[in-house]
Computed example of a mutant assay.
Amino acid sequence: MTKKTVIHDTADVYWKRKSDGHVISAAEAQLASISQSISEEELKGGIGNKTLYLLRSDKSIDAKVKNAFFDMEFMAMTQGVAIEENKFNVFEREDVTVDTDKTVKLQKTPVGTVSLKNSKGAAVQAEIKDGVVAVPEDFAKEGDVLTAVYKVEVTGETVEINTNKFSEMYELEYHTIEYDPDTGVVYSDLYIQFDKVAPSGEFEMSLENGSAYTPELSFKVLAADSKGKIGRFARVPRTETNTPVTPPPSPDTGTQTKAVDIGD
């Protein structure tokens, strides 16, 4: 008889892109779930139209992961692209003070024109020349503080959003731990594996002041071969063979040398 255990942790999550073997991991999941549904149809017959059999088909499994941290890899999964290092332009905003020569100096080098806005809400477009921006007459006087908005070139990680590209296929694995209800110690590692999943291209990103954005990703489990096998639940008991061995500290550290199982 198989052991009954208690599971009260979330899971570490791993994805492996099937096209190139690229691995993505999340050890900060708040939620790692699966949901199974099937189509059921009652077969009826005889006097009284009794239920004689239950026709079952179309087993479907969905997976969902909610993570505490934001990761650009999640965005790449939803878009069906890889993260790339690219140059691109972003807006820069700063407050500048009008000098005696009716110019303002910017902290960065703009790409294109600079938008200046005065305290009355009026705005003008100006060009940068010799490192300064000339302020038009009657727009502001010496000592006035203006708001300058302009674009600058930066380099960083990019995830392309392309209407012609969609999510690729991945392998998916959940790894959590089971506790012995009699002793309270870790009994085994539980793995939930799916050989082929497709990330949903649908996601929602809401940025709200005072609230952490916790990405949610959904996946559809697909058949990986003609035999109908799509995944597995696998339990690995915690034994000396299966538990990683931590080397003892050096003799001069004075640190406790007795091993303590903390379930990680």
Rank of each mutant, 00 (worst) to 15 (best):
M1W: 12
K3C: 01
T5K: 04
T5V: 12
H8P: 00
D9I: 03
A11V: 07
A11Y: 06
D12N: 12
W15K: 03
R17M: 05
S19W: 03
S19T: 12
S19L: 04
V23Y: 03
S25F: 02
A29P: 00
L31C: 02
L31D: 11
I34A: 12
I38R: 05
K44V: 08
G45V: 05
G45F: 11
G48S: 13
N49S: 12
S57A: 11
D58R: 07
S60P: 00
V65K: 03
V65T: 05
A68R: 10
A68V: 11
F74T: 02
Q79G: 00
Q79P: 01
V81T: 15
E94A: 09
E94C: 09
T97H: 06
V98N: 05
D101L: 02
T103V: 04
P110L: 02
V114T: 05
L116S: 12
S119H: 07
G121A: 05
A122T: 12
Q125R: 15
A126D: 09
E127N: 15
D130I: 00
D138T: 13
A140M: 11
G143R: 14
L146H: 10
A148N: 11
V149M: 12
V149G: 04
V149K: 14
K151N: 13
E153A: 11
G156V: 12
G156E: 07
G156P: 01
E160Y: 01
I161S: 00
N164Q: 14
M169H: 12
Y170L: 10
Y170S: 07
E171W: 07
H175E: 01
T183S: 15
V185G: 04
V186M: 06
D195I: 04
K196I: 02
V197H: 08
A198C: 00
P199C: 05
P199M: 09
S200R: 02
S200C: 04
M205D: 04
S206G: 03
S211P: 03
S226I: 00
S226V: 03
I230Q: 03
G231Q: 10
T239P: 01
P247L: 09
D252Y: 09
T255G: 03
T255A: 10
K258N: 07
A259K: 11
V260P: 01
